[in-house]
Design a protein around this nucleic acid. Structure first.
Lengths: 108, 108
DNA sequence: TTTATATGCAACTTTTTAGTTGCATAATTG
DNA sequence: CAATTATGCAACTAAAAAGTTGCATATAAA
């Protein structure tokens, strides 16, 4: 689905989710939901919801072991965001002067 | 403010706003709000609200001329998003095997 | 000057999002 | 087995977001 890119953008739009994702990227081992929760000033269920959204976007993967669900980050989907940005990067690479000229041509 | 990055992520989280931004990047001249509105199946005020959010994020700039407000895209703030992603790119560059090994070390 | 156009502002509705609490259940540990 | 732990599910609240309509106003065109 082309809807995936939407889930991805939504997932990283929230600062708490970016923090959770970052914590998982930095973690030296996969972390259970409870372990993650202790790092955030929020209820476990609140964290669980964020993780579900990250998981739906493909940014967090799970590994069920008994009563634990170990989570780890998977940054690969971010490639899509990167791809989206690449088109626009040609414009921010312009010098300010060049951008100025470009805009001058736009204003009638 | 470090809050700017938040506005930026929020701004690009909405598909309509990404469309508006894209249309402005592609436009050969700055476009008035009414001109932009005609391209979207939405009221002018709806579009205005999106443009305000894009403007707050720095992605759209204005140029008032009489009763018109000509809008044009400014992709430069996206550099910040790019910077945010750069850290994670080291992981998606890993081959699947390498990622696999990395994850193995994570799982008890 | 009259009319038409481009816009802003305010109030409102609907939907989504972020977060909570409470309870049930399955897996572990003592 | 009894107690503890990790979790999911459901219901709920509060706030933010997306979008609407109506009206006022300033500019431009006839």
């Amino acid at each position: 689905m082309q809807d995936n890119i939407n889930k991805l953008f939504k997932a990283i739009a929230d600062p708490t989710r970016r923090d959770i994702f970052h914590a998982l990227v930095l973690a030296t081992s996969a972390l259970s939901i409870t372990q993650i929760s202790t790092q955030f000033d929020m209820s476990r269920q609140g964290v669980t919801k964020h993780i579900k959204i990250l998981n739906d976007a493909g940014l967090v993967q799970m590994n069920e072991q008994g009563r634990n669900r170990f989570c780890y980050a998977d940054p690969k989907p971010l490639k899509e965001v990167n791809k989206w940005m690449q088109f626009y990067s040609q414009f921010w690479d312009d010098s300010l002067d060049k951008l100025g000229n470009y805009l001058d041509t736009k204003q009638t």
